[in-house]
């Protein structure tokens, strides 16, 4: 069961995010799903974790695991949290599905001393090639839904995200891009390489 041995079977981005979190920290996972990352963080990093999740099934799985998770929405429920309530606020593969990504990110940087964001990179060469060659919205293994079915309404590229961080005056403490086999792209590569070969990205941010 993934619950019993999370590291071994985990999504690479979750493991990388978990490694960015200091031991014993207070963490809010926005869009926490079935609580896999929160469980991982509790077991491996000893964190005091909380979660927000849209789906009832996810919330129930989390509560049954003993996690503190509320049914809610990143777009509407972050306002209630006070400033600096958490050491880290995590948004894993969710920012592209929010209605107002900029506002969500602002709240994350307000609520948490640090924010960790992972997202699919719409600038990946396969996405670009799909759009350029077929003239249709890309459908890939990583982004399997057609445009009319997808919950992802605000796709961005790594460079777009960096631009948003600059606009919000957020400082990037660490950034990782993962290629299609889940391996980190070498960090000494320039941004355009990341933006082309990174299938997903993970950013550790703090207020500037």
């Amino acid at each position: 069961m993934a619950h019993d041995d999370p590291i071994a079977t985990q999504r690479v981005d979750l493991v990388l995010m978990a490694e960015m979190v200091e031991r014993g920290a207070r963490v809010l996972d926005v869009g926490c799903g079935d609580g896999t990352l929160l469980s991982l963080l509790a077991e491996r990093r000893g964190v005091d974790g909380r979660g927000i999740e849209l789906s009832r099934e996810g919330v129930n799985q989390c509560v049954a695991r003993g996690l503190s998770v509320v049914q809610g929405d990143a777009d509407t429920d972050l306002f209630a949290y006070p400033d600096d309530a958490f050491d880290y606020v995590i948004l894993s593969q969710t920012i592209q599905a929010t209605r107002r990504p900029r506002v969500v990110l602002e709240h994350m940087l307000r609520i948490g001393r640090r924010a960790i964001v992972s997202f699919p990179n719409f600038g990946h060469w396969r996405v670009r090639a799909d759009l350029a060659l077929s003239g249709r919205m890309p459908v890939t293994d990583n982004l399997p839904e057609s445009w009319y079915d997808t919950p992802n309404i605000h796709f961005c590229t790594i460079r777009d995200f960096v631009a948003l961080c600059n606009e919000l005056n957020a400082r990037t403490e660490r950034a990782l891009a993962l290629n299609s086999s889940g391996q980190p792209v070498r960090f000494n590569m320039p941004w355009w390489v990341w933006n082309l070969f990174g299938e997903q990205a993970v950013f550790l941010l703090r207020r500037g």
Binding site: V63, V70, Q71, G72, A80, Y81, P82, A85
Partner: peptide, 21 residues
């Protein structure tokens, strides 16, 4: 119930919440 949850969040309390269908 959401009002309760938001208040508990604002107080940084440990809270779970689910709406049952």
């Amino acid at each position: 119930s959401r009002a309760i949850v938001h208040a508990l969040n604002a107080a940084a309390a440990s809270v779970s919440f689910v709406e049952i269908e």
